[in-house]
Amino acid sequence: MSAKILLVEDEENLAMGLEYNLKEEGYKVDWAKDGKEAIKFFAENNYDLILLDIMLPYLNGFEVAGFIRKENPQMPILMLTARTGVDDKVKGLEIGADDYITKPFHLKELLLRIKGMLKRKSWYSSVVKHEPIYKFGGNEINFENFKCRKGKTEFQLTSYEAMIMKYLILNKNKIVTRKELLENVWNTAPDVETRTIDNFMVRLRKYFENDPADPKFILSVRSAGYMFQDQI
């Protein structure tokens, strides 16, 4: 069955071109012209991915992403914008967008990113089904809604953090290389560097380790990658 994409774009010319290309790729597409319509469509239909512009009438892309994220933490959101400021990018990713592409963009790159995000979503949904909640050393992760608990402290993971944890847990006690993570979690998005993975690991250690400087669960394996173990 073909994936269904919600395209949220107020620029009519651009939206028509995007809709044409997405349909040519075999996706089903609904086009919302503003933030209000996007939320209405999202509430009434099931989508596999949201392609979301930031500057929109009535409700901007950040507000739409925030709303969607609250309702469905796993929904892949790809933000599309003319703004190039780092603040916008950070804000978008903090709110819960999974990826960000700036205008003008290359068609091939956009389509590759969409393909990668859908592949990731499908992989994640299938692996989460069997074991939605995972417990280790006083930590608990709910992979369906990304909610976690460490002792009495509750917090929320982003979709990338949840996917990395899931991948590490699936490969428990095995070395996972950075290349492997890039290929399977990011689907080798061109702008992702291996250092990004290290930053994610630092964050995950802060969440789950008692002493992030001396990790017991998420271990670094010199010149190889990372390894997860749940038995200390």
């Binding site: 620029e11 071109g17 003319a82 963009f105």
Partner: peptide, 14 residues
Amino acid sequence: LKSPLSSIQLYLET
């Protein structure tokens, strides 16, 4: 500036 430019680029690449 960028919106019409992206649209033109998109159609040309298409």
